[in-house]
Design a protein around this nucleic acid. Structure first.
Lengths: 227, 227
DNA sequence: CGCTCTATTGAACCGCATCAACGAACGTGG
DNA sequence: CCACGTTCGTTGATGCGGTTCAATAGAGCG
């Protein structure tokens, strides 16, 4: 749910758009704990304040699709027929701001908050459309490169050349997000590394060495060049 | 954009939810004509009254993803940063009800309409999540079977056994919706036909002979049985 | 009635999944 | 603090599902 609305990653200055009026106290979730499950009644939406959550759905036979990763600022938990239609699990230690569901259904309670939720929903639609392009059109390498650029663009971004990107999720998570096996994700990352586009200090911390070439790779305009 | 809110397929009784107050006169589009393009400024949303539209995006190199098909009742054209982020083209002769963009941004103009738009956006999110499961998790046969069940569930539905399903879009369109080549779509349809789940009077008119078995095929619970 | 566009079917290739082995990192308990 | 076990990531070998290329058949339209 890629919404960069009124929140921040660091718990200060979060009161734009009247968010304080619809929200209870923030709640904390430890890594690997669930915020809600598919099929649960929707009582609240949640705005991620810090940490990362993972929205996923599974088919009966266990196949899993990750619908989105929720980063700070994102609002998760939009209902469909009053129910949650994904699981939501904290990937890391996470702080969430609950938003009573009534603020979604009733404009009068807090018009600004209601408008912000509509805006958030539309931004999510937009992000999902980008995700469709990845899932439906792109090759494995393009998918992984696209994924890294998304994370790069969403994270604070230190410098311009030599941007550090954090990968808090597992290779399997990335695969389930992109419609790939974790082996293929691993191989694609290796390929980007050997091509000199990225460097890795650990499996979960990647330095992007050539931002523009990574974007080219994400679009299929891979300038053939090996290490 | 799978929203079955306040409209109908036949131009009567469309005034629930205050839709009349935000709308100009319906506009008609002939088959193969565009409603809007990616990158256009969003001045209106549109509720499909009759006919079918196709929402799509293309990558620079021409690869195309169909984001959604818009059926009667669906609302299309939600903006992202004030712009349309898909193309919208009429597949058939189509009648559309324009909704001024201001009704999205300003609750006061027409609270009911604004609420309906929010609801429509959330329903679309839900439909897109189903679409993700197809694109990311399912085999070709499962994708095509899922697609047919979606169309079946969205169309008036005549009887229970022996439901006629209309396929106004081309095989290529179906392929671009499901992330398959048109050849694979064609082969999967043939396979369903030879298995006795469907019958075809023409390439664009399918009769579903075994609703439940088709749903099983869509879920991967294919009861192995040939013609 | 013939032309063109779309759908179907066949054959060969290829990208990715799958299976399997290995290695590294991490957490746990001694 | 180290030894161990367990989980996760990487790499290799093989097979398959779906793409691609190509030819044919059928439908729609002038």
């Amino acid at each position: 749910m890629y919404v960069t609305l009124p929140a921040d990653a660091d718990a200060k200055n979060t009161n734009k758009h009247g968010f304080e009026k619809g929200c209870g106290v923030d709640l904390s979730r430890s890594a690997r704990s669930y915020v809600y499950h598919e099929g649960d009644e929707v009582t609240h939406l949640y705005q991620v304040q810090s940490g990362i959550v993972r929205l996923s759905r599974v088919l009966r036979d266990g196949r899993r699709q990750i619908i989105a990763f929720g980063f700070p600022g994102d609002i998760v938990g939009f209902p469909s027929r009053d129910l949650h239609h994904t699981d939501c699990e904290a990937l890391t230690e996470t702080r969430l701001r609950p938003i009573k569901r009534a603020f979604l259904d009733n404009q009068n309670l807090n018009p600004d908050l209601n408008a912000a939720l509509l805006h958030a929903a539309m931004d999510e639609i937009s992000a999902m459309q980008d995700h469709f392009m990845m899932l439906g059109c792109k090759s494995a390498l393009e998918k992984v490169a696209s994924f890294l650029t998304i994370l790069m663009d969403r994270q604070p971004a230190s410098g311009d050349q030599g941007t550090m990107v954090d990968l808090p999720m597992s290779r399997t998570d990335i695969g389930d997000f992109l419609g790939l096996s974790m082996e293929t994700v691993s191989r694609s990352i290796t390929q980007l590394r050997k091509a000199g586009l990225i460097r890795m200090s650990s499996a979960h911390s990647i330095e992007v060495l050539a931002t523009d070439r990574l974007r080219d790779a994400a679009d299929g305009t891979m300038s053939a060049k090996a290490a």
